[in-house]
């Protein structure tokens, strides 16, 4: 029932979280640079027009709304963290996830998404140009090893560039660090 309040990006994010953590037993970290700007903009437009603000839009305008809906619908009671980092979301996701792993959690689910950007904001900020979401299950001892080195230039990865890198279309991913996956 709660899913109806999510946009397509939120629904895709929840699908990924459920797929990667079917037992709802792992910490979840979700990053989005801009969050649900459509809800925020609609509220601002209502206020400007002297109209009341929709309680549903208000409830969904917080940055942890997607994780909140997911945790209620899946009865998830582990740590949840929503973050925005002005373009450094990918690095922040990995550092926060690493913290949970160091605390002893066997794995952490990290999701990175962007909702569509309303036309009023086009050209005012960087955006991948389309709605997108990517998810990863991170552990300390399974799968391909991830290494970080100093990049030549820092960059702001989006979920699209992360997907391309994970697909093997790029040899590394530049954020605050240069991230590389060891070959299998």
């Amino acid at each position: 029932m709660l899913r109806r309040r999510l946009d397509d990006t939120g629904r895709a994010t929840c699908d990924i979280l459920r797929e990667l953590d079917p037992e709802a037993g792992l910490p979840l970290v979700h990053a989005s640079r801009h969050g649900g700007t459509a809800d925020t903009l609609a509220m601002l437009e209502n206020l400007q027009g002297g109209h009341p603000v929709s309680p549903t839009r208000f409830s969904m305008s917080v940055h942890n709304a997607i994780l909140g809906v997911h945790s209620i619908s899946q009865s998830h009671h582990r740590p949840l963290q929503a973050l925005g980092a002005c373009g450094d979301e990918f690095d922040a996701l990995l550092y926060e996830s690493f913290g949970y792993l160091m605390e002893g959690y066997p794995a952490v689910i990290a999701a990175f998404s962007e909702s569509p950007l309303p036309s009023a904001y086009q050209g005012c900020t960087e955006h991948p140009g389309t709605a997108c979401v990517v998810g990863m299950r991170l552990t300390l001892n399974q799968g391909r090893q991830l290494t970080a080195t100093k990049p030549t230039h820092c960059a702001y990865p989006t979920p699209i560039t992360v997907m391309n890198w994970l697909n093997g279309d790029a040899p590394f991913l530049d954020g605050r660090s240069r991230w590389q996956l060891r070959q299998e």
């Binding site: 029932m1 009341p52 929709s54 309680p55 549903t56 409830s59």
Partner: peptide, 16 residues
């Protein structure tokens, strides 16, 4: 119908 407190507020606004 399984509605919650946010739905109640939204419905109140719609009635208004």
């Amino acid at each position: 119908l399984g509605l919650d407190s946010i739905d109640a507020l939204e419905l109140g606004l719609a009635l208004q």
